[in-house]
């Protein structure tokens, strides 16, 4: 028989671990609570419909207006544009890595893609500002290259790694029997990938895209450096502000209702990203089950 001595140290450690676990939960609750408490007053003041749908953001005017439709739409367009560009490229890259690349080439490309996700967003912003923005200005003969278009390009590159890695995993998880069956019917490898493997991996691929949407909506720093930051309604080559960059760029000088309105923007952003996450979990679960 095993002798079980009560070990005080072990119990202590157990308590310590649970405390650490609870800390994470506590922070989530704390942040949510704080956001709601801080974000609701300005919403009360302006009214939710006016706040969300108002096209005019002039917080420091004589008669200040707090309409965040420009930011909301910019975030939506920006994320959509980034996904529209990044998802096909990422998906094809995943197909290349998982299916068609010679193993050695894949082994060289994969770390490069992973490296992309390790680059700090301020570096994306810097390169965007110094290289991309001037290039866009010259290419399209604009007065200024900073705007929605440049932001979309930067975001598209930033979401690439997550789309590639999640899609690649999904493609690899497709049972090889499906592919063998398709090849045995006389399909080529490319036909097999596009007509059997990709549809079979569609749950994971969709999840990777939603993940990309989440990243794109949440990104602030890189976007701040290339989007121009004027509160315009979005248009491809106009200077724009995102939900995130509105907060980041105005918090330092705001006060009173303006500051409270920025908290409300954070609350909207928070719900937006939660929505995306719920969607993501749904997709992942459907794929697993």
């Amino acid at each position: 028989m095993m002798r079980r001595t009560p070990r005080p140290l072990e119990r202590l450690m157990g308590l310590f671990f649970s405390a650490c676990g609870l800390t994470a939960v506590a922070f989530v609750l704390l942040i949510s609570l704080y956001l709601i408490l801080a974000g609701v007053p300005a919403l009360r003041e302006t009214g939710l419909p006016d706040f969300l749908l108002g096209r005019q953001w002039s917080p420091t005017a004589q008669r200040p207006e707090f309409g965040i439709a420009p930011f909301l739409l910019t975030s939506v367009y920006g994320a959509a544009g980034a996904v529209l560009l990044g998802a096909p490229i990422g998906l094809l890259c995943a197909v290349f890595l998982a299916k068609t690349a010679p193993p050695r080439l894949a082994a060289a490309v994969r770390p490069a893609v992973e490296l992309l996700s390790g680059i700090p967003s301020v570096v994306y912003g810097l390169v965007g500002m110094l290289v991309l923005v001037p290039a866009v200005r010259r290419c399209f003969r604009l007065p200024d290259g900073a705007g929605l278009f440049s932001a979309i390009l930067v975001l598209a590159v930033m979401i690439l790694p997550s789309i590639v890695s999640v899609s690649e995993a999904a493609l690899r998880a497709v049972p090889p029997e499906y592919e063998a069956a398709s090849l045995a019917l006389g399909a080529t490898q490319i036909e097999t990938v596009f007509r059997v493997t990709l549809p079979a991996a569609s749950g994971g691929v969709a999840a990777s895209v939603v993940l990309g949407v989440g990243r794109a909506i949440g990104e602030a720093m890189a976007v701040l450096m290339v989007a121009g930051n004027a509160a315009n309604m979005p248009s491809l080559f106009k200077s724009v502000k995102f939900l995130t960059t509105a907060i980041a760029s105005e918090m330092s000088y705001s006060s009173g209702l303006h500051r409270q309105a920025l908290f409300s923007i954070a609350l909207v952003l928070f719900f937006f990203i939660m929505l995306v996450n719920v969607l993501l979990n749904r997709l992942l679960k459907r794929k697993g089950g």
Binding site: Y178, A184, L185, G186, V196
Partner: peptide, 30 residues
């Protein structure tokens, strides 16, 4: 061409995760 002439059925049934119709139509469509 060869695999169109010489078909194969595997030990484990491997229908594609699509409709019955699309499974059978897969080869002709290809």
């Amino acid at each position: 061409w060869l695999r169109k002439q010489i078909g194969m059925v595997f030990q484990k049934p491997t229908p594609f995760p699509m409709s019955i119709y699309d499974n059978v139509a897969y080869g002709p469509r290809t």
